[in-house]
Amino acid sequence: MKAQDPRYELREPTREIELRLTGNMERYMWSINGVKYEDADPIRLKYGERVRFKFVNETMMTHPMHLHGMWSILDVGAGQWNPIKHTVSVQPGTTVYMETEVDEPGQWAFHCHLSYHAAAGMFRKVIVEGGPDSTQAKTGVVTEEGGDA
Protein backbone atom coordinates (compact mmCIF):
# COMPACT_ATOMS: atom_id res chain seq x y z
CA MET A 1 0.00 0.00 0.00
CA LYS A 2 1.31 3.45 -0.91
CA ALA A 3 -0.01 7.03 -0.90
CA GLN A 4 -0.78 8.61 -4.27
CA ASP A 5 0.32 12.02 -3.02
CA PRO A 6 2.20 12.84 0.19
CA ARG A 7 -0.16 14.70 2.56
CA TYR A 8 2.40 15.66 5.20
CA GLU A 9 6.03 16.73 5.14
CA LEU A 10 8.34 13.87 6.07
CA ARG A 11 9.76 14.53 9.56
CA GLU A 12 10.83 12.58 12.60
CA PRO A 13 8.28 12.00 15.35
CA THR A 14 8.79 13.96 18.55
CA ARG A 15 7.99 10.90 20.70
CA GLU A 16 6.61 7.37 20.68
CA ILE A 17 3.64 6.08 22.64
CA GLU A 18 3.28 2.31 23.04
CA LEU A 19 -0.26 0.98 23.18
CA ARG A 20 -0.54 -2.71 24.04
CA LEU A 21 -3.88 -4.09 22.84
CA THR A 22 -4.88 -6.44 25.62
CA GLY A 23 -7.82 -8.57 26.59
CA ASN A 24 -9.29 -11.94 27.34
CA MET A 25 -11.61 -13.61 24.84
CA GLU A 26 -13.06 -16.10 27.35
CA ARG A 27 -14.01 -13.38 29.84
CA TYR A 28 -14.70 -10.91 27.00
CA MET A 29 -12.60 -8.12 28.46
CA TRP A 30 -10.74 -5.63 26.25
CA SER A 31 -8.29 -2.93 27.23
CA ILE A 32 -5.24 -0.89 26.28
CA ASN A 33 -2.08 -1.53 28.32
CA GLY A 34 -4.16 -3.80 30.57
CA VAL A 35 -6.38 -0.89 31.69
CA LYS A 36 -10.03 -0.40 30.73
CA TYR A 37 -11.25 3.04 29.63
CA GLU A 38 -12.99 3.97 32.88
CA ASP A 39 -9.76 3.39 34.84
CA ALA A 40 -7.38 5.06 32.35
CA ASP A 41 -5.87 8.50 32.14
CA PRO A 42 -6.34 10.29 28.83
CA ILE A 43 -3.56 10.36 26.25
CA ARG A 44 -2.20 13.91 26.14
CA LEU A 45 -0.75 15.28 22.91
CA LYS A 46 0.62 18.72 22.07
CA TYR A 47 -0.64 20.59 19.04
CA GLY A 48 2.02 20.64 16.30
CA GLU A 49 3.94 17.55 17.35
CA ARG A 50 4.20 14.34 15.36
CA VAL A 51 3.58 11.28 17.52
CA ARG A 52 4.52 7.72 16.63
CA PHE A 53 2.14 5.12 18.04
CA LYS A 54 3.38 1.57 18.49
CA PHE A 55 0.53 -0.93 18.65
CA VAL A 56 1.41 -4.33 20.12
CA ASN A 57 -1.53 -6.70 19.73
CA GLU A 58 -1.30 -9.26 22.53
CA THR A 59 -4.66 -10.82 21.66
CA MET A 60 -5.84 -13.39 19.15
CA MET A 61 -8.22 -10.95 17.44
CA THR A 62 -7.72 -8.18 14.88
CA HIS A 63 -8.23 -4.68 16.29
CA PRO A 64 -8.99 -1.88 13.80
CA MET A 65 -7.75 1.15 15.76
CA HIS A 66 -9.37 4.50 14.98
CA LEU A 67 -8.33 8.00 16.10
CA HIS A 68 -11.01 10.62 15.64
CA GLY A 69 -10.13 14.09 14.32
CA MET A 70 -6.70 13.40 12.83
CA TRP A 71 -5.24 11.22 10.10
CA SER A 72 -3.16 8.14 10.79
CA ILE A 73 0.00 7.62 8.75
CA LEU A 74 0.58 3.86 8.53
CA ASP A 75 4.30 3.06 8.56
CA VAL A 76 4.89 0.56 5.75
CA GLY A 77 8.49 1.69 5.18
CA ALA A 78 7.63 4.00 2.27
CA GLY A 79 8.69 7.28 3.94
CA GLN A 80 6.68 10.21 2.60
CA TRP A 81 4.63 7.72 0.54
CA ASN A 82 3.28 5.89 3.63
CA PRO A 83 -0.52 5.64 3.27
CA ILE A 84 -2.86 7.91 5.19
CA LYS A 85 -5.75 6.12 6.88
CA HIS A 86 -8.62 6.71 9.30
CA THR A 87 -8.37 3.21 10.76
CA VAL A 88 -5.27 1.05 11.20
CA SER A 89 -5.84 -2.71 11.37
CA VAL A 90 -3.63 -4.51 13.90
CA GLN A 91 -3.59 -8.26 13.27
CA PRO A 92 -3.32 -10.80 16.15
CA GLY A 93 0.15 -11.08 17.67
CA THR A 94 1.66 -8.29 15.54
CA THR A 95 3.25 -4.89 16.09
CA VAL A 96 2.17 -1.99 13.87
CA TYR A 97 3.45 1.59 13.80
CA MET A 98 1.52 4.68 12.81
CA GLU A 99 2.31 8.37 13.06
CA THR A 100 -0.07 11.24 13.61
CA GLU A 101 0.38 14.91 12.82
CA VAL A 102 -1.30 16.48 15.83
CA ASP A 103 -3.07 19.22 13.91
CA GLU A 104 -6.51 19.45 15.56
CA PRO A 105 -6.95 20.83 19.09
CA GLY A 106 -9.61 19.45 21.38
CA GLN A 107 -10.72 16.13 22.84
CA TRP A 108 -10.94 13.07 20.64
CA ALA A 109 -11.92 9.41 20.86
CA PHE A 110 -9.28 6.72 20.17
CA HIS A 111 -10.65 3.18 20.14
CA CYS A 112 -10.95 -0.22 18.57
CA HIS A 113 -13.46 0.19 15.75
CA LEU A 114 -15.20 -3.04 16.77
CA SER A 115 -17.80 -1.26 18.87
CA TYR A 116 -18.18 -4.13 21.34
CA HIS A 117 -14.40 -4.03 22.02
CA ALA A 118 -14.55 -0.26 22.55
CA ALA A 119 -17.58 -0.59 24.83
CA ALA A 120 -15.77 -3.27 26.86
CA GLY A 121 -12.79 -0.96 27.50
CA MET A 122 -10.47 -0.76 24.44
CA PHE A 123 -10.95 2.99 24.27
CA ARG A 124 -9.03 6.14 25.28
CA LYS A 125 -9.75 9.83 25.37
CA VAL A 126 -7.09 11.91 23.57
CA ILE A 127 -6.60 15.51 24.66
CA VAL A 128 -4.72 17.79 22.27
CA GLU A 129 -3.31 20.74 24.21
CA GLY A 130 -2.57 24.11 22.63
CA GLY A 131 -3.06 25.15 19.05
CA PRO A 132 -4.75 28.03 17.31
CA ASP A 133 -7.66 29.50 19.22
CA SER A 134 -7.43 26.65 21.74
CA THR A 135 -10.15 28.21 23.90
CA GLN A 136 -12.68 27.24 21.20
CA ALA A 137 -11.04 23.95 20.23
CA LYS A 138 -12.95 21.47 18.11
CA THR A 139 -14.12 18.33 19.79
CA GLY A 140 -15.03 14.83 18.77
CA VAL A 141 -17.05 14.91 21.98
CA VAL A 142 -16.28 12.05 24.34
CA THR A 143 -18.89 11.27 26.96
CA GLU A 144 -18.11 9.87 30.40
CA GLU A 145 -19.42 6.47 29.26
CA GLY A 146 -16.70 6.36 26.60
CA GLY A 147 -18.88 6.77 23.54
CA ASP A 148 -19.24 9.55 21.05
CA ALA A 149 -22.00 12.03 21.74
Rank of each mutant, 00 (worst) to 15 (best):
Q91L: 12
I43P: 01
W71S: 13
H86T: 15
P83G: 15
M60F: 12
G69I: 07
Y37K: 00
E101I: 05
K36R: 14
V96G: 02
N57D: 06
H66A: 13
G93P: 03
H63Y: 09
I73Y: 04
E101W: 09
Y28S: 14
M98S: 03
E16H: 13
N57M: 07
E99F: 05
R15Y: 11
Y97Q: 02
E16P: 14
F55I: 15
P42V: 07
R50H: 08
L19C: 09
L74M: 14
V96I: 12
V90E: 07
L19Y: 02
E38G: 09
R44D: 07
D39H: 14
R20G: 00
D39Q: 15
R50C: 08
W71N: 10
E99T: 03
E58Y: 06
L74F: 15
P105F: 03
T22H: 05
G77Q: 07
V96H: 00
V76R: 02
E101F: 10
Y47A: 06
H86G: 11
T100V: 12
E101S: 09
I17R: 10
M98Q: 05
T22C: 01
E49Q: 13
L67M: 12
L67R: 03
L67N: 03
Y28Q: 13
R27W: 04
F55P: 00
R50I: 08
E38I: 10
S72C: 14
A40H: 02
G34D: 02
D75V: 02
M70R: 06
M29A: 15
W81R: 15
F53D: 06
T87I: 08
E49I: 05
R20H: 06
E101T: 07
G106K: 00
N24S: 12
T94Q: 14
W108M: 05
P42Y: 05
R20N: 09
H68I: 06
G34W: 01
M61F: 11
I17S: 05
R44E: 00
D39Y: 06
N57Q: 06
E26I: 11
M98Y: 04
D103L: 05
T22K: 08
V88P: 02
I32N: 01
L74C: 10
P83V: 07
M60G: 10
T62G: 13
T95M: 07
R15T: 14
N57A: 08
L74V: 02
S72Q: 11
L19H: 02
G23Y: 04
T87Y: 02
M60D: 13
L45N: 03
R20M: 04
G93R: 15
T87G: 02
P92F: 09
V76H: 09
W71L: 08
Q91C: 08
P64V: 05
G93Q: 14
N24Y: 12
P42W: 07
E18K: 14
L67G: 01
G69E: 09
R50Q: 12
T22F: 03
V35I: 15
Y97G: 00
M65G: 01
N57K: 11
T87R: 11
R44V: 07
H68G: 00
Q91K: 12
I73T: 01
D103M: 10
E26L: 02
T22P: 03
N33H: 13
F55R: 07
K85E: 15
P83C: 15
G23T: 04
Y47G: 04
K85W: 13
K36Y: 05
A40L: 09
D75C: 04
M70P: 04
T95F: 00
N33T: 07
V96L: 06
V76P: 00
G79M: 06
V90H: 01
V96R: 00
P105T: 08
Y37F: 13
